[in-house]
């Protein structure tokens, strides 16, 4: 219907057409900050993650350490810096796991269709019939908690959503004429997947990765907060909140600081994803009425 070349600019890269906004720079800056801390933490932190530096527990900000001490008299600032490593690494690993499973199975289901699709979709649906926290609790209840169990469980929980997104993408793009054309040519499944479907699903998949990453951080820190995630003496932000909740009534911020750090991480990530998806949103008829 259109000869309107100027309205359909080529999209060689998924990042084409994105313009930096102040929010994006701000959110990206925060993420970058945490990333640097995670990489160089041990050289920056004044104390070890488990070192008890003061006999005074729940010391307020400025006393003992920079950000005070926790329930055992450890340096909150140092544990915070070590914690960002655990938090980011675990989130990354779980998200990667979920994408490995979710994307592979999702696209396979969309392309192979038939019984494979039905069986896999049914199983995933049954898994989704539980709120994700519940699923994780059941598994942890059965296997006990360890980093491996934790990572695999959360990876599994996240992968159901990744599966759904990739399957839907696979189905949507799989019926487009250019994929039909490849099929009519006689191309194999592998070509269709890697050359036709995948390059056209990059943008939504990247956004999904960001969302799952955020979710993974929230999820893991929630489990740690319940005492079912990362175990002491390792430093993890969710765990730090759990350890120090009692201090809240003693005027200590040792629980609030790591909680706020988690929030800064997840909020920034969400802002960034939102910015990445922004260009898809346009005006609506409603706005035009007022003009």
């Amino acid at each position: 219907m259109s000869d309107a070349t100027e309205f359909a600019k080529p999209r060689a890269s998924v990042f084409a057409g994105l313009r930096l906004t102040r929010t994006a720079i701000f959110a990206g800056g925060i993420l970058l900050f945490w990333l640097v801390l995670a990489l160089f933490g041990p050289w920056i932190a004044p104390h070890g993650e488990a070192d008890i530096i003061s006999t005074k527990t729940f010391a307020p900000i400025g006393e003992g350490g920079w950000l005070g001490t926790d329930k055992l008299g450890r340096d909150v600032f140092s544990r915070l810096i070590y914690g960002v490593r655990t938090t980011l690494l675990l989130a990354l690993v779980t998200t990667v796991i979920s994408f490995t499973f979710g994307v592979t199975l999702g696209f396979a289901a969309a392309i192979l269709k038939g019984w494979f699709d039905i069986v896999v979709s049914r199983i995933v649906e049954a898994f989704m019939a539980f709120p994700s926290t519940l699923l994780a609790l059941v598994v942890i209840g059965a296997f006990g908690t360890s980093i491996t169990v934790l990572v695999l469980t959360v990876g599994l929980v996240l992968s159901t959503s990744v599966f759904r997104v990739s399957r839907a993408l696979g189905y949507d793009i799989g019926v487009m004429d250019f994929v039909e054309a490849a099929r009519a040519r006689g191309e194999g499944t592998w070509w269709i997947l890697t050359r036709e479907i995948l390059p056209n699903s990059m943008a939504p998949l990247i956004a999904e990765f960001g969302l799952r990453f955020t979710f993974s951080i929230l999820f893991l820190s929630g489990l740690s907060f319940l005492g079912l995630g990362v175990q002491e003496p390792a430093a993890d932000w969710g765990l730090m909140v759990q350890e120090n909740v009692g201090g809240l009534f003693l005027g200590s911020s040792a629980a609030l600081i790591p909680a706020a750090c988690i929030a800064s991480l997840t909020v920034s990530m969400n802002l960034l994803v939102d910015w990445f998806q922004q260009r898809q949103q346009g005006e609506t008829v409603l706005e035009k009425i007022d003009q």
Binding site: S221, V241, T266, V267, N270, E287
Partner: peptide, 28 residues
């Protein structure tokens, strides 16, 4: 109010709220 100030403010607030852990809200 799509596109208006109310909409934008609410969008920002809720975007942040979604990303904040529940225990943080509870503790605050």
């Amino acid at each position: 109010r799509a596109g208006g100030r109310v909409d934008k403010t609410l969008a920002m607030t809720t975007l942040a709220l979604i990303a904040v852990p529940e225990f943080f809200i509870g503790l605050i």
